[in-house]
């Protein structure tokens, strides 16, 4: 196992490094700049008024969430495909998939919450049974299931393989859910709520949106790296815990 080499290097027993500290501070600073841009500098929207400022959280978070889901799916596929031939038995891919999955769920939750708040202001209700919303909600629950598999009490290799398969299944399921829900809603009622969403975004608003995307990406990267390292530490702890328990029992045997 890679645990032995990991243990030998004390730098790896921490979740932060110089690079991630810098990344963290830059992320934090860009969040502050984003708040300034989004709340003060960017203008009100002609149609949506102040509510448009939710856009700067709502849209970047879903983009980051989608990106992270893709990362989870790719890392899971690599784990199943290449994992066994790697020296670390694919632990790297597995940790990456897990860290990306957790960040994705967090950001998707942010998207759903900001979306509901925005909906309350714009449509007068928190929730619309719109195809996109329904798909997103089901996607959120599917990936909660994925995280539940990652946390289930089982042998690590078995857990990783099942989690990887579950991640790929969830990814395959997204277009199926989206297609069926889209068809359901178009049959029942035309989606009227999108008209004002697609209005052109230009100038300061566009710049703010792009900056927000950058800021959220930095924060997501920071979170992901820390989660990755924390998972590795947990693996080391599990391994060492077992080794300690074994040697303690052996010692008992000698003393008796």
């Amino acid at each position: 196992m890679s645990g032995a080499s990991d243990r030998g290097d004390s730098r790896h027993l921490m979740t932060s490094s110089v690079a991630t500290r810098v990344l963290g501070w830059v992320g934090l600073a860009s969040m502050a700049v984003m708040a300034l841009l989004g709340l003060v500098i960017s203008p009100r929207d002609r149609i949506q008024g102040e509510a448009v400022r939710l856009l700067y959280i709502h849209v970047p978070t879903i983009w980051v969430a989608y990106g992270s889901f893709i990362l989870t799916a790719v890392a899971s596929a690599l784990y199943l495909w290449r994992g066994s031939s790697r020296e670390d038995r694919g632990r790297h891919y597995d940790r990456l998939a897990g860290a990306a999955g957790e960040v994705a769920v967090l950001f998707l939750a942010l998207t759903l919450v900001t979306g509901m708040l925005w909906g309350r202001i714009t449509w007068g209700v928190f929730w619309q049974w719109d195809a996109r919303l329904t798909t997103t909600a089901l996607m959120f629950v599917s990936y909660l299931g994925y995280l539940a598999i990652r946390n289930m009490p089982a042998e690590i290799e078995a857990r990783s393989r099942r989690a990887a398969i579950a991640a790929l299944l969830a990814a395959v399921n997204i277009p199926i859910v989206h297609f069926s829900v889209e068809w359901w809603r178009t049959l029942h009622q035309k989606a009227s709520i999108r008209s004002d969403r697609n209005s052109e975004i230009t100038g300061d608003m566009f710049a703010t949106l792009m900056f927000s995307l950058l800021a959220f990406t930095l924060v997501a990267a920071w979170l992901m790296i820390h989660r990755y390292r924390l998972v590795r530490l947990e693996e080391i702890r599990e391994e060492e815990g077992l080794a300690l328990a074994v040697s303690a029992r052996r010692a008992e045997g000698v003393n008796a």
Partner: peptide, 27 residues
């Protein structure tokens, strides 16, 4: 099969299965 042999199977299976079969329920 995904939740086979897992101690938390009883609670894990519905959480995994229901979102996936939602399109079947819908259709």
């Amino acid at each position: 099969a995904l939740s086979l042999g897992v101690r938390v199977r009883e609670t894990l299976l519905p959480l995994l299965l229901i979102p996936v079969v939602a399109p079947i329920l819908l259709g």
